[in-house]
Amino acid sequence: MSATTSSSFFKLPLSLIGVIKPLFFCFLLLPSLLISYAIIFDPLMLGANPAEAILHHTGDWVIYSLLLTLAVTPVRRVTKWNDAIKLRRMLGLFSFYYVSLHFLTYLGFDRLFDLSDMAREIAKRPFILVGFLAFLLMIPLAVTSTRGWVLRIGGKTWARLHKLIYAIAVLGIVHYWWLVKRDIFWPLLLGLVLAVLLVCRLFLFLRSAPRQRGARASS
C-alpha cells in the first residue's frame, strides 16, 4: 500500500452525506436481515407466530421508510442541507423493498401462493384492498426511480407522477388503521406524523408558490 492511496482513502467519506447515506442504508436493511436470519435459523426469535410477526414488521417498515422519504424535503428546507435530497431515492426504494416483502409474506404464508384466493380476499376486505392499491401505485414509482427514467419522461412529468407518494402514504395509514382490532395507538401516531409532514409541505408550498410564480412570469 502506498502512502498516497491511504491518504485518499481517509479523504473519501468526509462529506456528511457520504457518512449518513451508508448509515441509513445499513439501518434500513437491518430489519430484513434479522427477519431472514430468524426464518432460516430460529423462527421463534419472532415469537409464537413468526408469519404474523414478519407481516407486521415488514408492514411497519414500509410506513417508517415512507415517512422518512417524505421527511427529506422539509428537513432540507429547514436545515438548508441540500445534500439531503441524495437520500430520497434510496429511502423510497426501501419502502418498495419492504412493501414487496410484505406482499410476498401475505401471498405466501396467508394465501398459500393461491392468486385467485388472494384476489377474492382483496375484493372482500377493504383494508387489504387499500393496502394492495398502495402497493400497485408504488410499482411505477420504483420503476421510474432511475436517472434514465427522469430524462426519458421529463422532470416535470416525473415530479408529477411521484406526487403519488402522498396518496400511497395515506392509503398505507388507512390500511393499518382498518386492520387493528381495538388499539389504534400506532396507526394514530404514524398518521399524525404523516399529517405533520403533509402540513409542512403545504406550508412550504404556500410560502414558495408566489415567488415561483413570479419567477416563471419574468422568465
Partner: peptide
C-alpha cells in the same frame, strides 16, 4: 404494535 422482535424464546426453553 411496538417494534420488538417478539418475546425471545430460546430453543432450550422449548
Amino acid at each position: 404494535m411496538t417494534y420488538t422482535f417478539g418475546p425471545k424464546i430460546s430453543s432450550s426453553e422449548i
